[in-house]
Design a protein around this nucleic acid. Structure first.
Lengths: 212, 212
DNA sequence: ATCCCCAGTGAATGATATTCATTTTCCGAT
DNA sequence: ATCGGAAAATGAATATCATTCACTGGGGAT
């Protein structure tokens, strides 16, 4: 093997224009055809590079997808962290996270498709991503939930982990539905943030236990 | 082309043993390697048939996966419908659905992996499945929610669609976490049904609106 | 001006999905 | 029991990509 191949074949020059062009092209092409049916040659063509060039930047097709998702996710998490600094009420923080999540994907359909479909590609793939990124996102959600419990606005007996899954699951599911919905009937994804959060909030807030 | 090839290349003999053997093999192999890295020849070998035989039963690799998922899903929906007949309280019905969902996947790890990862394969793929199967599942959930609203146990002002997404999303997310979790720390998926449903129920039940 | 260096290239290679000419199995008619 | 032909099944041949690698061109150092 010519190149010892670290995880990403090239680490220098990552800032290069070409690197990002390939990532963008990958998102577009994969969103259109799905990972399996996407030809590396088509991604290369759309990015304006030769087929082989892709392999200077990424070890293989899998890692190309992974890098594209990673890159987008990093941006999302960074934006979320910044936005949360402006807010103090834990309920409002959850609304903010839901809004950013829905807005980030709702404003870029190709990215949303890749996140909701290709990210879940193979278990190994998902596990690796999950470990790096999802954990970070979940930690963010959980820290808000814990904060809310300490402030006595969220039920202190609740499992923070389970509640976080409910919150994330609900938001995530709404996105999946959106990308499958008739493109005609365009509705704004971020407009749904409040309705979802309202249900989840009522579910986790302090107050009369629900009847059994 | 020799065979006019309907959606599934063969419709007669679908009950054949060989058909089911191929489906089972597909689930196992795809759960292990992911769809992209699964070789049709390995599925054929595990099913004890020749490579070409697969194509007598399924048009291509995509439709093989689709058929495997469809088949498992049909069984789930049928079981759910039957079980719900025994229950009348809408809250209890939701618990039943969550339990069956978690039990059905929790007792077959390979199937769970395929459902949580490969099902979401490509948007077109997901859309097609979604249309056939998911709609049925969602209708089931929604009908329970509507029933609960009529019985005044669930908030009548709630959007049934949104609430259904919250419910499904929460359950679905728990399954994803389970397949990614350390295999060592085996816990029973179905044991989580009540915790999740408790949160969702409290979120949708009639009662004091939550503070804002 | 000459020499490195290395990003970039794209034709060659290898892997594997799919096809199809052939073989085997099955079954009703005689 | 035997035959004939249709239905199933086979697996070698083909087609389609992912991936490799021997080569090219340009720019910075000497």
């Amino acid at each position: 093997m010519k190149r010892p191949s670290t995880t990403t074949a090239r680490n220098a020059n990552v800032a290069s224009d070409k690197y990002q062009r390939i990532l963008d092209a990958a998102i577009e092409v994969i969103a259109n055809h799905g990972f399996f049916h996407s030809r590396v040659s088509e991604i290369a063509e759309r990015a304006g590079v030769a087929d082989g060039t892709i392999y200077l930047y990424f070890k293989n097709k899998d890692e190309l997808l992974m890098a594209a998702i990673d890159s987008a996710f990093h941006r999302f998490i960074a934006r979320a962290r910044t936005a949360l600094k402006e807010v103090s009420d834990p309920r409002e923080k959850l609304r903010t996270i839901a809004f950013l999540h829905l807005e980030g994907l709702g404003s870029n359909r190709s990215l949303a498709i890749v996140f909701q479909t290709e990210l879940r590609h193979s278990a190994k793939f998902l596990a690796e991503f999950s470990h790096n990124m999802m954990v970070e996102y979940f930690d963010l959600i959980k820290s808000v939930l814990r904060e809310g419990q300490e402030a006595r606005v969220f039920d202190a007996e609740l499992s923070v982990t389970i509640a976080a899954h409910c919150f994330f699951g609900a938001v995530d599911e709404i996105v999946t539905t959106w990308i499958l919905a008739d493109r005609e009937r365009e509705y704004h994804l971020s407009g749904l943030a409040d309705s979802i959060v309202e249900i989840v909030l009522k579910g986790i807030e302090t107050g009369n236990k629900h009847g059994h």
